[in-house]
């Protein structure tokens, strides 16, 4: 796999930062250089949250992803803000149960997945981020299946470990849908 710069964006509370951390930890388990950088500041309060994750075979320069290889958009403002920044040939993953608008770019691969609906139908409301992660994993194969699971286990806080299997299920659903 080549270097992968990922930008995840959505509302605060959708698990954007958490998802980024799972990816970064999985990359670390895979033996890659990784970085994770959140947006911080007043825009997080009720507004948008985004997170840059870099996975590389080499030392990571700028941890701030300005031109992502993969954009995950979990709300409309994020898609509108970052759509044009994606590198040509890159991937945009859209939670189509939240965003009705279509991606205008034709030089990128766009994947629409009703992640929020899928999570809710399976009784795990609020786990759309894990459905998206499953999709992102399927599309990019950024790590092995085993290391993805290790990354998940590393990221879930010990007190919430009872949610591990539900998260695993959502990742599986994301891969299959």
């Amino acid at each position: 796999m080549n270097d992968l710069n990922i930008l995840l964006a959505g509302f605060g509370g959708q698990g954007i930062l958490f998802t980024g951390k799972v990816i970064a930890y999985a990359g670390l388990m895979e033996g890659k250089e990784v970085s994770w950088l959140p947006s911080y500041g007043p825009e997080m309060r009720g507004g948008t949250a985004n997170c840059s994750v870099c996975l590389s075979e080499n030392k990571i320069g700028s941890p701030l992803v300005t031109n992502p290889d993969v954009l995950v958009a979990m709300n409309l403002p994020s898609l509108e803000k970052f759509e044009n920044d994606v590198v040509p040939g890159g991937i945009i993953i859209v939670d189509s149960s939240i965003i009705a608008k279509k991606v205008q770019r034709t030089d990128v691969k766009t994947i629409y997945i009703p992640a929020s609906e899928i999570a809710e139908e399976n009784g795990i409301k609020g786990a759309a981020n894990m459905v998206i992660l499953g999709k992102l994993f399927k599309e990019t194969c950024f790590c092995s299946e085993e290391n993805l699971d290790k990354g998940l286990q590393k990221t879930i806080p010990p007190k919430k470990m009872d949610l591990l299997d539900k998260n695993r299920l959502c990742i599986k659903l994301g891969r299959e849908n």
Partner: peptide, 10 residues
């Protein structure tokens, strides 16, 4: 700085 303070790395 804010970048190094906020980012996560191994």
């Amino acid at each position: 700085d804010g970048l190094l303070g906020q980012m996560m790395e191994p």
